[in-house]
Structure formats: structure tokens, C-alpha cells
Design a protein around this nucleic acid. Sequence first.
DNA 1: ATCCCGAGGG
DNA 2: CCCTCTGGAT
Length: 213
Amino acid sequence: MKKSEKALQLLQALDEIYPQAHCALNYQNPWQLLVATILSAQCTDVRVNIVTAELFRVLPDAKAMAEASQEQVEELIRTTGFFRNKAKNLIHCAQQVLTLHQGEVPADLKSLVALSGVGRKTANVVLGNAFQIPGMVVDTHVKRLVRRFGWTKSDNPEQVEKELSKLLPESTWIQCSHTLIAHGRACCKAPTPICSACPVVALCPRKGVNKSK
DNA sequence: ATCCCGAGGG
DNA sequence: CCCTCTGGAT
């Protein structure tokens, strides 16, 4: 069987085990998803949703965010961590969306990555979930799992994204990230995967490398 | 202690 | 390539 066929077989098995995998961030429009995704760095989605409930009430759109003070935004997002950097990026990002894109979040990778605080991971989350434009989201979970699966040997997120995009059909990209992340959280953890309870151990090249429980 | 759906700067 | 930024959860 070809490498891409094997990968697809494993992915389809995971899709059946995690059919409910989806973007767990709360948002009502592309701008709010962009904000929530920026806040999600090194923070759980549950915590982001707690913070954005109040944040979106006080500062509902890019215009309000662009006019807010650094101190106000810091206070609203403090518990998500990295709050100084995130506040600075959010305000600058909002100003860029207003001046460069007439207040609308752009729907292409190049424009998104040019925004303050937005890297390829965040850009692909917004493209896939707000605009239904396929993009491979390579975060820490996705990178760890696909390396364990032997789908790539690269440690560079952008290189991993490139190789995955070649290996998997475009139609799988959006859901695939959610599925891999769900499995990464539930089972294929860093640094010790729970191989004895893994539903796809038979399809994994490591075949249960972690023998402890 | 270690991890959480990273990005920017040196 | 490395470092820094940060609080919360377990």
C-alpha cells in the first residue's frame, strides 16, 4: 500500500473514533475567531471561551479593539497568559484590519499572516473554520502525531504543513487537524502516549512503543 | 513538574 | 537556531 493510502486509512479510522472533533472556540464571525485563536496560544479553549464571553461584550469588533487601551485589553485577557504580547498584537491587528482591509478579516493566507500576532497556524484555523478554505493547521499536537505516524520526519512546522498538504487530499485538511488534535489530547500525549489504550495502535508504525500502562 | 490548538525577535 | 512571553490546569 502507498504511503498516502496508509495515511488516509489511519486518518479515516481516527475520524470514526472522534466524529465530534471540531473547533471548540466560541465565536460569531471571522474577527471573533481570529481573536479567540490568537488568545489560545498556551491556553486551554475552555479558558479562552471564559475570557472572550466578556471581551466580546465590551469590545465586540475590530473597531472597538483598535480604539481600546493597552491596559484595558490586558485586564480583559490576563488569565489567558502572555497577556502583554497578546494585548499589543490584538490592538495592532485590529488597526491593520481597519486600515488595510476595511474592517473585514481577509480570507487569504498571505494577508492573514501579515497581521500582527498571526502566524500560519492561526491563519489556517481562521481560513478553515470561518471561511471553509482548506488549510493544514499544524500545531504542537498535529506535529507530534504525524511524526509518530511517520508521515513526516521534519521538525519544522512549515515544512510539516507542506508535506502533509502533499500527502493528504485537500478535502481532508480542515477536519484532519481537529481529529488529530482530539487524539493527541485524549491518547497520543506528549511525552508518553497511552499506547495500551490506543484505538489505532495496529495502524501505528510504533506499535505501542510506550509499554508502561 | 509539565503541559496547554504560538508568534516575534535576536 | 535559540530565547522570551504568561497564567491556569493537572
